[in-house]
Nucleic acid binder design. Structure first.
Length: 217
DNA sequence: ACCCAGGGTCATA
DNA sequence: TATGACCATGGG
């Protein structure tokens, strides 16, 4: 089974996912940092706090003390680390000239520039480039590695960049496709053989070795 | 009570 | 380059 067929099956089963949940591009960037190793439900609380304090802008986040910011984002966990990361990102973002200046960059240069910021690793950079700037960069996360390893399409030991190259070389470079595909990988991983096993209904189960011969499936 | 969630950095070998 | 410690809340 190839990548496009897997996408078609997931898309048909789950329908449009409407990612990333955010009102603005800047909110996507903040959410991308806050959701590092953290459940999204906790990120929502933190972003709601920032909105209630009228602090959901790069200028506002920088003008807050680090401790004050940490208290606002407390529900998202790692709040001291993330307060530093958010301010590092916002400082860089403003120095670089904000959204329009970054949006003028070619996609690869944009990805590398964002990746160079303190507190922004490979996945966070990809989230921002794809979901805030609408550029065709494929997001590699633990779900992606795990799912496609179980499907037997990758070993699972590849580097982050090797996996990203594999997906981007195997798919048309369309941001709408990458956007939807990553969202589908996440919903499928949460839905399938974890909290709520889909068993025989899983749209990928028939070709997924992981599901074969397991009692719960 | 335990497990983990839409990771990343830093110190050590 | 490759592990390990560390960061921390909230829901199952």
């Amino acid at each position: 089974m190839q990548l496009l067929e897997i996408y078609e099956r997931l898309s048909k089963y789950y329908g449009p996912r409407d990612w990333w949940p955010a009102d603005t591009a800047f909110e996507v960037m903040v959410g991308a940092i806050l959701t590092q190793n953290t459940a999204w439900s906790n990120v929502v609380k933190a972003i709601d706090n920032l909105k209630a304090a009228d602090c959901l802008s790069a200028e506002s986040i920088n003008s807050l003390s680090q401790d004050r910011l940490a208290q606002l984002i407390r529900p998202s966990g790692y709040y001291n680390v993330k307060a530093k990361r958010l301010q590092a990102y916002c400082r860089w973002y403003l120095e670089r000239g904000g959204f329009d200046a970054l949006d003028a960059m070619p996609t690869d240069a944009m990805r590398e520039a964002i990746l160079s910021v303190y507190g922004v690793g490979p996945e966070t950079a990809e989230d921002i480039v794809l979901y805030a700037f609408n550029r065709p960069v494929f997001v590699i996360d633990t779900y992606t590695r795990r799912t496609f390893s179980r499907l037997g399409l990758v070993e699972g030991t590849e580097t982050h960049e090797e996996l990203r190259q594999y997906f981007q070389d195997s798919l048309p470079a369309e941001s709408a496709l990458f956007n939807e595909y990553h969202a589908l990988i996440v919903i499928h991983a949460k839905d399938c053989c974890r909290k709520k096993p889909l068993c025989g209904q899983c749209p990928l189960a028939m070709d997924c070795d992981y599901f074969k011969g397991r009692e719960e499936c």
